[in-house]
């Protein structure tokens, strides 16, 4: 059963409990939902991929989506910024609110939504342009006309992902010449440069070598508090290290479903559901 953590979170959050079990991040978790998902169902060409998802994402927190492959985590993630629009034959039903606005509403500007809700993909996908153009071009596209502002934002974003020192003297080199980890951090910087409030990450570390993965992971922790992060991961240890909340997805009736949502600590240490318990202890999945 889906356990709505809303009441507890509201109650305990006010009491100021600390989430994020391992690392003491900055004070971040306002128990204020920034994304509200109600009755979400997604199907591809008539085949359901996700059914009946009700979930709140809390502001400034890192929420990890865990579960086996094909359980709809990535689908859920890309429905949050309507990237599902790009998939032919994909139908989304239900209501998703970002900052209280229904993102499927008739007067919603998808481009503004995606500017506010940034996304990082599993495989680093820097554009075949220079490092600088990769960051500059989205800013220009979004009408940031002042050159100084663009430069300062680029610098800030590159510093945020710890890439500034590494690439400051070769900004005009092709982005594809960077290493995999650097490429992924560049992609995160590319999302940050637009100053989103929410970041969606689809297994951001799984295509990287262990060292780069660690760097990226630390960086995500550093984003806690300033950004709302929703991250899909297969790596349970990683979820425990970085997340404040965790949502467990499972395949039920041949479609993905949300089984349990709770603070990360409780989901891993005292899961309410047998399926969750089996999965987090490694007995299934």
């Amino acid at each position: 059963m889906t356990l709505g953590p809303k009441d507890e979170a509201a109650g305990e959050g006010a009491a100021g409990y600390t989430v994020g079990p391992m690392l003491a991040g900055p004070e971040c978790c306002t128990p204020e939902p920034v994304i509200g998902v109600r009755g979400l169902a997604v199907s591809y060409a008539g085949v359901p991929a996700l059914k009946h998802v009700d979930l709140d994402i809390y502001k400034g927190c890192v929420t990890a989506l865990i579960g086996p492959s094909g359980c709809g985590k990535s689908t859920f993630l890309s429905s949050l910024n309507r990237l599902t629009d790009l998939v032919a034959g994909c139908r989304v039903a239900g209501r998703i609110e970002v900052d209280g606005v229904d993102i499927h509403g008739p007067d919603v500007d998808v481009q503004a939504l995606r500017r506010k809700v940034g996304m990082i993909f599993q495989k680093p996908n820097p554009f075949p342009l220079s490092i600088h153009r990769n960051l500059d071009m989205p800013l220009r596209e979004h009408g940031v006309r002042s050159r100084d502002e663009r430069e300062s934002r680029i610098r800030a974003a590159l510093s945020d992902v710890g890439l500034w020192e590494e690439v400051a003297d070769r900004l005009d080199e092709p982005a594809l010449s960077l290493s995999g980890g650097q490429q992924q951090r560049l992609c995160i910087a590319r999302a940050l440069v637009l100053q989103p409030s929410i970041l969606l990450m689809d297994e951001p570390c799984s295509a990287l070598d262990p060292l780069s993965a660690e760097t990226v992971e630390k960086m995500i922790v550093g984003l806690r508090g300033r950004y709302t992060v929703v991250v899909v991961t297969h790596n349970l240890a990683q979820a425990r290290r970085i997340a404040n909340f965790a949502a467990f997805f499972w395949v039920r009736d041949r479609a993905g479903a949300l089984i349990e949502f709770d603070t990360c600590q409780r989901l891993f240490e005292a899961p309410a559901h047998d399926l969750t318990a089996a999965y987090v202890t490694g007995r299934s999945g």
């Binding site: 900052d99 007067d107 919603v108 503004a112 500017r115």
Partner: peptide, 13 residues
């Protein structure tokens, strides 16, 4: 912060 609603602030293609 940007509003999600269609605005004339940024000229869209």
């Amino acid at each position: 912060m940007t509003s999600l609603r269609i605005s004339s602030l940024f000229p869209r293609t």
